[in-house]
Amino acid sequence: MSDEEETASQLTDNQKIEIAKWFLLNSPAGEIQYVAKDIRALLKNERLYLAAVSEAFPLYNKSHLICLEFPDRSGEVMVTSFSEIDKNEYIDPRTAQVAIIDHVKQVIEDARPAKDEELPSSYVEEYRSALDVEIIKYVSEAYPKGVCSVYCTSGKDVEEPGMDFELVVVICAARHSPQNFCNGSWRSVWNMEFKDELQMVEVRGKFEVGAHYFEEGNVQLDAKHECKDSTVFQSADDSAVSLTTIIRHHEAEYLNSLQKSYSKLPDTTFKDLRRKLPVTRTLFPWHNTQQFSLTKDIQKSLGLEGSK
C-alpha cells in the first residue's frame, strides 16, 4: 500500500487532477456521476477529487446543456454558457428566474427573481419570447423529451429598431436508460443574428448527437454538424415563425443524413474495415490450405512471387 502511494506519487497533484478531469469531461451523456464515482475510488484522495470535480462538472454541464428543475416546479433552467450569469447562477428567461445551482450534485439549490439588468429590453424580449413560444411548440412535436430555451446573447439593451441584437436557441433531448445499457443526447444550438441594416437574420446551427450502448461492450456514436441559413428581418411574431421553420427544416435534414449514414454502414463504410464474406464469397477453405502453398510454389517457379 505504501509502495503504491510512493510510485503513484511520481505524478504531481496537478497531473492527477488533469487526468481525473480528462475522464470526467469525456464521460458520455448522463454518465458523469458514474465516472466521478470511479475517479474518486482511483484517486483515493478527497482533496484532489474535489479539485477535479469542481473544475470538470461546470464545463461538462454546460457542454451537455443539462436541464435542472426549479425546486418549486415552476419550470426548469438549462445550464449553458448563454444562460450563465455567474459560476453557479443560470438564468431562465421564460420564468425570469435565476437558479443557484450545485454543479457537482447537478441540482438547483436556490432560486431568485432575475434583476432587471439581467433581462433584455422589452423590444428584444418581444422577439425572444415570440421565438420561445414557437420553439416550445416545435420541440414538443419533434422531441418526446426535449427541452429548449431562447437567450439574448448580445444587444439585450437595444430599445428600438436601428440596432443589431442576437438570440440563441438551445435545444436538448437526452435519454438515460442504464437498465437498458443505453444513454444518448441530441443537442443543437442556433445563433440568430438580427442585422438591422441588412434587414436580415443570419442563422448558424450546430448539432451534436451522441449515443452509448454498453451491454457487454462499449459502442458509441459521436456525430457533429454545422449549417447556415438566413431569412428576412420581420416583426417579432413573423420572425419567430420563419426562424422556427428554418430550424425544423435543418434538424429534419440532419436526422435524415444520420439515418443515411447508418444505412450505408453494412455495405459500404463497414465493408472498408472488414467484409462480411471473403472476396471469394465462400467461407475460407481451412481444410484445404495446401492449395495456397501449391500456388505459391507455382508462382515461385514462374518468377511471379511478389509481382502482385
Partner: peptide, 15 residues
C-alpha cells in the same frame, strides 16, 4: 451495437 445507437437517436428524435 450500431443498431442500438441508431435506435437511441430515433428515440431522441423520432423520424
Amino acid at each position: 451495437y450500431f443498431g442500438k445507437t441508431k435506435e437511441m437517436v430515433c428515440t431522441l428524435r423520432p423520424p
